[in-house]
Amino acid sequence: MGVITDNLPGVLEPLPGGSVLVTAVDQLINWSRSNSLWPLTFGTSCCAIEMMMATGAARHDMARFGAEVARPSPRQADLLVIAGTIVKRMAPRLRTLYEQMAEPRYVMATGSCAICGGPFMYHSYTTIRGADEIIPVDVYVPGCPPRPEAFFYGLLTLQKMIREGESIRHPGERRRPVLAALPEGMTLDDIRKEMQDLLSHDANVNMTDAAAEGAHYSAELKDF
């Protein structure tokens, strides 16, 4: 693939009708990429079970979308499905796994934990608030855990994105389908700032208050 994506546009473009040909090649490559996704088996917690129901189990079958060949090795996979919470200790390993995968690689964040920390968003001292703090994520599938149907919707969205999003003229640049718009007068930076304020408010402990409560409590507990 490397030869085609690196050299083909340069050879084809100058020819008469070359642009049309490049677009046709684009479509062919994207069509084959979108229908032969090999997922990496990477489940950390609960969502992995629903992932298993979706991929391998009896009622739902991912093979219909060409994505059933689950690979345990990142070097053979091109779809990283993050199913479950990512904690601080796992984060470097996730990054390593991502970097070991060959281009083009796609990432799906499945479940609330992989999107934003989910139920472990507040008061947890280890959870990474969203896998996208570590690696770029292409598709988010919400749910705690998402149903297999939701997972399939995410997979179909990813396939749509692959088919429409990339051109061999600019390898590595992806266009995401616009799915939702922000409300009037609100920017992404506002949301990010509000989030940071909330998190820092939760993470800071007033030591004098905490110590006073502890002393009061240990006096109470002497009887037990």
Binding site: C46, I49, T85, V87, R89, F120, H123
Partner: peptide
């Protein structure tokens, strides 16, 4: 590698709020 601090999180909510966290322990 999947330590999420569920026990510590339990101290920040009331008793009914702790129930849904243990779902995610042994799911």
């Amino acid at each position: 590698y999947i330590h999420r601090g569920i026990e510590k999180m339990g101290e920040h909510g009331n008793y009914r709020q702790f129930v849904h966290l243990v779902d995610r322990m042994d799911y």
